[in-house]
Design a protein around this nucleic acid. Structure first.
Lengths: 103, 103
DNA sequence: TGCCTATATGCCGATCGGGCTATATTGCTG
DNA sequence: CAGCAATATAGCCCGATCGGCATATAGGCA
């Protein structure tokens, strides 16, 4: 899990994940949508793959990548004990907004 | 938000946060519980502070640190759209386990 | 003031990571 | 098989970062 945070620390990789979240895509499609060279994108995909965050399907020369969300669930689990801390703050914020809207 | 992931990428910093989640602590207390020198811990605390993940309270020479969960909520928000993906997988897994147990 | 405690900062060495270019690999097609 | 398309790998450079040691700063106390 240690490495999942490290993998997500890079903005390009999060952008790749966000693109793949919409739909499965081949590498060239990602290259077209990012301002990175093809080798750089392939390198990021390798990192994501080794972290279990994406999976590949081969179709002739194309490799279709898709999100594999397992490791994200682990991050969610790490966050869980903190969640009540900010929910408490948000509740207070909501109450204040309600008061303002009530005016 | 980009930097929150980077800040959490370091295991020592996550360990510090986990310790502070239990209770507010002075620096020396953290040093006692980690295998890091005091300057290294102070350095991590500075990073956490600048990322808005902890807050400090001064009490004579002691500085009491506590968690400030705001940035964690942003991470949670980034995760949100992925959540249904793994929930779907977990549901499928549960169904399969149910089938097996049904045998 | 001088000393002690608690914490922060500066600096260095080593390592890591992201980007690039060049090249290898794989699969299709003529 | 030759050649093209799609992707992966290798090698390199540079900047960032983590850890430690030495030292500075700040507050309390004799």
């Amino acid at each position: 899990m240690t490495s999942t945070f490290a993998v997500l620390a890079d903005p390009s990789r999060r952008e790749i994940l966000d693109l793949l979240r919409e739909r499965e895509r081949p590498v060239g499609d990602l290259v077209d949508r990012l301002t990175l060279t093809q080798p750089t994108v392939s390198k990021h995909l390798r990192v994501l793959r080794e972290a279990g965050l994406v999976e590949v399907r081969t179709d002739a020369q194309k490799r279709w990548y898709r999100v594999s969300p397992g490791p994200l669930a682990e991050i969610d689990a790490w966050l869980a004990p903190y969640r009540r801390m900010w929910e408490k703050s948000l509740d207070a914020l909501e109450r204040r907004l309600d008061e303002i809207e009530g005016d």
